[in-house]
Write a protein that binds this DNA or RNA. Structure first.
Lengths: 314, 314
DNA sequence: CGGCCGTTTGAGCCACATCAACCGGGGTGG
DNA sequence: CCACCCCGGTTGATGTGGCTCAAACGGCCG
């Protein structure tokens, strides 16, 4: 009943128009049909965004990303390009031309919640950019316990160091449905030869990630459970803010088990500490939403200083 | 009674000759005089090394490093260039020309044991290469406790990410007397513009460091004290091996307090765990030496897999 | 010789783990 | 439509790894 849309050749406005039609239609339905319609709408919006951005930066629109999206069509997640672009510009310090080149050779791919994106130990892995959704990098130990070593938000590069190391030391999987852009290693290699300035951007992103990891190391080694959790929440809230929204209310699809795997704690203990934070009116965390009630108090409890997340302008 | 030597313009062999004369002389003395003579000898040897290496790679010898060394003259530590060169070639994948350029603009500096090299929060920090000795990167928390987030061995870059981030997020100090080469940020900036291939080498080193940190994260989060300690010792032993020597007997100038600050444990507990490892005949650690008695057993106790330390050839 | 630093040992305690049970909601199959 | 289940969250009881406090020991240096 839903015929496949042709995306190519449509103008940005046309695409937005189509998207809002889908949304309107969705409002009158429910269940799976509604979900499908909404998904199509977000895809259309994504393509519209991409198109608009490429027009803005005066480039003949690349069909690659669009094609890939048309192919994987159903099941996508809410989306816009701004987190990725903001990372390109602010954190990696890339020129518009470099941003454009990266996007133009990237393939888009929808990933379902809980799906594995790359396996530990793989070699010649593509560079992966997270457009929407949340992902984690995990190591599983022999006894079955897990440690999450990174949480990626929209705009983050999932594996910034893998390309130079020539392998991935860790598995990455999604915590929500997500849209991922991927650039194959050979193609990236070529691009970096043509535009060597991009190398420095990737280096910067790798270093940024390392400095985030360093903070994790510090609280894992030296802080008690409550401060650990508070610090992690501060980090997530702070990173979410800089990548867009302005509220103190975030989507936060982590279970308590996953929080435990981040903080090196048991699920039970995470639960108790979470209640302490709730009771002291610092944060509220339930049903996949994180609400910061007292930002200053939370920062204090965590000894959180956000400067490590910021980069000086170049 | 010891006149200052002129170093410039001497050939490599001449320098080595002078060094061995000093050593011979030292044998007949003792106390401070002997120490001074030995120090001069090691400096002469260093300069000879540098000279030899530059001759080998067909470059007009840069006077910079040599001058700096002559200036700081007294108090140096045993030294050779091979660890740094091995890192340049193997871990960073630099061409001979790139290696030469880096060395030629670096300033050498002797650092005493326990001395601070860079303070947390500084900006525009130089790139620092550790030639000899051991160093650590530390964060001190408000309550006075410390967490060591990295241990650097000869050949390591102390702060691979700082240059792109434009600041140092951490303080670095020595654990033994050390020889450090430093390259100021502006000069490095210039060099990277002329020889952009070096950027990728630094990116690689940054990524390598991040993957070491990741392992720390994993044992801090999920492993009990004994496995943590074992894993750390494995890492150090493994890294020491690849950067030169062939024995299972290493210089290891860490106190139990410092081990605790690495592993997130108290001194007392480090002591007890260390005894467990001793009793099970895996390692022996005393008086600044680490002796691996049963490498295989130690690897098993730690679930240690050294692949994360190695890099595939390019 | 005394003082200092690093190591060692013991006693008691607490943060956090483990085990086990129950709750509540959303999805599924009959 | 209900019954069921499964998963995530919550709660309690109990165990323990690692901490803290305190004191003694041994080597090194002035």
């Amino acid at each position: 009943m839903l015929h496949r849309l042709t995306l190519q050749g449509r103008s940005c406005d046309e695409l937005r128009q189509l998207a809002s039609e889908r949304r309107a239609l969705a409002a009158s339905k429910d269940g799976n049909l509604r979900a499908l319609l909404l998904n199509e709408a977000t895809l259309l919006e994504f393509y519209g965004e991409l198109r608009a951005w490429m027009d803005r930066t005066a480039m003949p629109p690349s069909q690659r990303a669009a094609q890939a999206i048309a192919a994987t069509s159903h099941r996508s997640s809410a989306f816009d390009l701004s987190p990725i672009l903001s990372t390109f510009a602010r954190r990696m310090g890339l020129s518009l031309a470099d941003q454009r080149s990266l996007l133009s050779i990237s393939q888009a791919r929808n990933v379902a919640k809980g799906e594995m994106i790359i396996e530990e130990g793989g070699s010649s892995v593509p560079l992966l950019l997270l457009c929407s959704g949340v992902a984690r990098a995990t190591r599983t130990l022999e006894d079955g316990s897990q440690q999450i070593v990174a949480v990626c938000l929209p705009g983050d590069i999932l594996n910034p160091g893998d390309f130079v190391l020539g392998r991935s030391g860790i598995s990455i999987s999604t915590l929500s449905s997500a849209l991922v852009l991927s650039i194959s290693a050979p193609e990236l290699h070529l691009l970096l030869q043509q535009q060597p300035t991009i190398v420095r951007g990737l280096w910067r992103e790798t270093a940024w990630r390392a400095s985030v990891q360093r903070e994790w190391l510090i609280w894992l080694g030296r802080k008690p459970a409550e401060a650990r959790l508070a610090h992690f929440l501060c980090e997530v809230a702070s990173r979410s803010l800089t990548s867009g929204r302005e509220t103190d209310d975030f989507e936060f699809p982590l279970t308590q088990r996953e929080l435990g795997d981040i903080l090196g704690l048991s699920t039970v203990h995470v639960n108790r500490v979470l209640q302490q934070l709730r009771n002291s009116k610092l944060v509220d965390l339930s049903r996949g939403r994180l609400i910061v009630r007292d930002r200053v108090g939370l920062y204090q409890a965590a000894e959180f200083d956000p400067t490590y997340l910021e980069l000086p302008e170049r």
